[in-house]
Amino acid sequence: MKKIFFLVLLLTPILFTNCTEPIDLELDNDTPKLVVDAFIDWKKGTSGEIQVINLTRTSAFYDKEIHAVSGATVFIKNSLNEQFDFFETEKKGKYLCTSFKPATDETYTLTVINNGQTYVGTETMTSVTPVTRVERKTGPVEKEYASVEVKAYFNDPKDVDNFYMLKVSPIHEGDPSFTLISDELFKGKEYFNIHSDSYYVSNDAGSKDKRKSESSSKISADLFKNKKHFNKNSKKFFEDGDEDENQDDENQDDEDQNQGPFFSHKVTLTNTGISERYYNYLKKLQSIVDNIDDKFKAPSVRLKGNMKNITEKGNYPLGYFSVNESEEIVHEFNIE
């Protein structure tokens, strides 16, 4: 009988957690494609004159290098045919414009000319619904963990379909870098962007901010993936220490903490108004990047953006040209 109970203990973890391990696959190489990373963003309260576009090429899957595309001609035109030129900076493949004129509901056309091929894409600047109030909650410290929550509320306009990209920073590697929301379920009502998490707040010298172990099993994670409207950034936490380069920063933080308040942290919440087409693009992007389990997931496919090749139709570029307005709320909380 003892042996049986031992077996029970032994087998438990096996059952409901899929195991993942590295595997070597032979992958054939495709011809490289141009990638246009043009996220034109007008932050509320700025002039929006400075904009950046990055041009790269796709690389073989195991190839870690990013191949910049240098020497391209890049410009945007608005509906009045005003041209805003982008010039390549010292960093190869990074093109900068300092004279962009942002206007909501204005239509812009991006042209990229490279290697004798001309690529174009058109997009209209989508405005963002302003944040009306910010709510913060700090829970009591329980078992050395403190829970915090920041909510940025906005009133969704009626009669229009609105699409939002919500970002919270800092984020943890592996978590989605943004959440997408369509106003389908709260049209004309108040809604919010939220950051909530528990932080480890110990006085011990040298201790690091740690995530409370509220991680989920694989199965649960998959369900989140499939839930269209589950867009909570709840499981964000900061400085997990996954990457070595973060270590120094963390130690820095610890030192800060010893002097000032027990615990202090800055959170940025960004709401971006996006077009329906860009929303659809980003949704597909999410499903490709949040690549977790087979059972609840649609098969991944190539992500096609809104840029086309007018010289050679079949050789279309990847990436997206989006023009958006955004609003940033910075919140700092201290726990004594």
């Binding site: 696959l25 992958l27 054939d28 190489n29 495709d30 490289p32 494609k33 990638v35 990373d37 996220f39 990055n54 790269t56 090429r57 796709t58 690389s59 073989a60 899957f61 990013i66 870098s177 992007l285 490709i288 990047v289 690549n291 098969p299 991944s300 496919v301 190539r302 992500l303 990847l318 990436g319 997206y320």
Partner: peptide, 18 residues
């Protein structure tokens, strides 16, 4: 369906599927 190449878009490294 396998990804045979990948590329950078924004903060995301996107696998490009066949």
């Amino acid at each position: 369906t396998y990804a045979t190449s990948s590329y950078q878009y924004g903060d995301n490294l996107i696998p490009d599927y066949s």
